[in-house]
Every structure is written in C-alpha cells, then in structure tokens.
C-alpha cells in the first residue's frame, strides 16, 4: 500500500523541474483557460498558505510564464468569475464545487492517519455516487472532476447553477450527501401510508438509500456512531450482507424498527461530512489549479478523464518522484 506521507514534500529544485520540464499550459483545462480573464489566481510560494492573492492573467501564456518563473509551492484559481477579478469585484457567477477529501471521510475502512490508497479509493467511490445524483436527479451535465492530491474536486459549470447563492448550494449539498432522513409516513385522503426510503426507487429517498447503503457496507467494528452501541453495531455488521442484495426489509427486521432508525439517523448526521460543505457554499473560493503541483505530497493536481478507472498513483505522480534516489 502506498501512503501519501511516504511521498515527501517536493524540494524547490523539484518544483522547478516540474514546472519547467514536465508541466504544460495545455494541461490546464479549457474551462479555466477560456475564462482566464474573469478569474482570480492565488499562489503559495513558501508553503504557508496562498498569501499571494488577487492575481489576474490576461492570457494563458502569461500564466505559463508566471508558473515557469516562480515555480510556486501551490497554485490556485477562483471558482468565481468576476468583471474585475483583480479586486474580486463585480462577481458574476461561480462554479458549483464539491470537495471530497479522503482524510475527512466520516466512515473509512482504513485506519491510516492521513490518506492512503484505501481511503483515496473510497473518496473516488463517493465521487462516483455524487456524480450519478448530479446527473440523474439534478440534470447537470457540464461536470469536471479533478484529483486534488488528497481527494477530489467536483466542479459543475452548468449555467443553471452558476448563479445560485450559498443557501441553494447548501441545500444541494444536503440532497447529494443524504443528510436528512426522508419521511416514512405520508397522508392520503383517509389513511396514512408508510413507505420506507428503501422501497422508493426515485427522488431523494433513493439517493438517501444509496448513501446509507454505502456507509453501512463500509462500517467496521471500530466505527463510532452516535447512539449506536457495540451490540447494535455488531448486529449491523452481522446482517449487512442482506443489503448488498437490497434486502432492506429483512435487514430492518433483523435489527428491529427502533434500532434500525437509530442506525439510519446516526449515519445521516455523519453524511454531512462526506464533502466539505464550507467549500461548496463559498462563492469566492479558490481551488487548487488543475495541472499544478501539490508540493506537500509531491502529486499532480490532475483533471480526471474517467473516474471509474482513475488511479492517482498511476496518473498523478510527477516524473521527479520516480527519479528520486532512495
């Protein structure tokens, strides 16, 4: 197993080699270069955070020259578009973004302290689920995924959502991650009917079922869930094979309705941490520039072409890492 910590920070010399020999402006995605004049850029030159902000480049060539000369520790670009990016003035719109950081996933099967191959893969699986909902439920299509170095950024550029405010973005996050337990009792004219989330194969209840299923299948005996004691956790682990085949009714019966509710409530409250919601609601956020170097872990921030098959250890490791002497 590869641990990211084993990939030591890039030296200033390695940064120079990366930007001057390996990096190419063509690796910066079109959705950034085409709007380069409307975006704010930020840089971290010494590894203490992006202090060099409010930078603007009129052309991709100027950005290229800057990166090749300054070889920064980290490079960022705004998700926001401005009429006057130099002053972050006259905001016009912002990409809708989701930040899935492997180290912050609330339920992980690995026990590493930072990030490792296992949790990075779990982050990738979570991204796949979110992408599916963005397309199937919200009807969004102009979506780009970027491997950030320690997780993934999902960047949505559909015009329909670029103008929405933080409150709408916050509701989108909650919908995507399954943060609220759906109702299970509905009123008809003269009766109440009960539909558990898992019998509804569409809409939010279906999203919720998928997220809960993912979480339950990734629990282990050390997972701590609020309101779920050891015995209940063990019963969940013992019976979870039932939901692999979507036998939810049986699974619920095995636990008992009240205990099932406890498990579901507890996981729903953890789901909010599947993405860093602060990033999604921030209309002026800067995100790591795709193609730039994550110097802390010596990995490339890489645009992902196919998330189903993406492997950061094959596609995001810069050449200088392979050439390092033991």
């Amino acid at each position: 197993m590869v641990k990211i910590e084993y990939l030591t920070p890039a030296s200033p010399e390695e940064r120079k080699r990366y930007y001057r020999e390996e990096w190419d402006i063509k690796q910066v995605p079109d959705y950034i270069t085409h709007s380069i004049q409307e975006r704010e850029f930020g840089f971290d030159h010494v590894g203490r955070g992006p202090n060099d902000r409010y930078k603007v480049f009129r052309t991709p060539d100027l950005l290229k020259r800057f990166l090749k000369v300054r070889t920064p520790f980290a490079a960022y670009c705004s998700v926001a578009f401005y009429d006057k990016p130099r002053r972050r003035d006259r905001w016009t719109k912002a990409e809708l973004v989701f930040d899935v950081d492997a180290k912050d996933i609330p339920i992980r099967t690995c026990e590493c302290e930072g990030v490792c191959e296992i949790c990075l893969n779990e982050a990738r699986e979570i991204v796949c689920g979110i992408l599916d909902t963005l397309k199937a439920d919200l009807g969004l299509n102009n979506i780009h995924v970027v491997y950030s170095g320690r997780g993934y950024h999902i960047r949505v550029l559909d015009n329909d959502v670029m103008g929405v405010n933080s409150d709408v973005r916050s509701q989108i996050v909650k919908y995507l991650v399954g943060a609220d337990v759906p109702e299970n009792e509905y009123s008809l004219d003269y009766e109440k009917v009960s539909y558990e989330h898992f019998v509804i194969p569409f809409g939010y209840p279906n999203v919720f079922t998928k997220r809960i299923k993912y979480s339950i299948l990734h629990l282990n005996e050390h997972t701590e869930l609020d309101g779920v004691n050891k015995k209940l956790l063990n019963d969940v682990l013992k019976n979870r094979h039932l939901i692999e085949d979507d036998n939810w009714g049986l699974f619920k019966n095995k636990l008992g309705p009240l205990r099932y509710k406890k498990v579901v409530n507890s996981i729903a409250s953890l789901n909010m941490s599947l993405v860093d919601a602060k990033v999604s609601i921030d209309l002026k956020r800067i995100l790591r520039l795709p193609s730039s170097l994550h110097s802390m872990v010596s990995m490339k921030c890489t645009e992902v072409k196919n998330i189903e098959t993406f492997d950061p250890f094959k596609e995001a490791v810069p050449k200088f890492v392979y050439e390092r002497k033991e």
């Binding site: 199937a136 439920d137 509701q171 989108i172 919908y175 609220d180 759906p182 569409f202």
Partner: peptide, 14 residues
C-alpha cells in the same frame, strides 16, 4: 429562502 426544500420535491433529470 427555505420555503421549499430540495428533498421535498421529486426530481428526475433536472
């Protein structure tokens, strides 16, 4: 304005 919650609605392909 939270008058409607996204999850109250049944959505399909936007």
């Amino acid at each position: 304005t939270k008058k409607l919650k996204l999850h109250d609605l049944i959505l399909d392909k936007g």
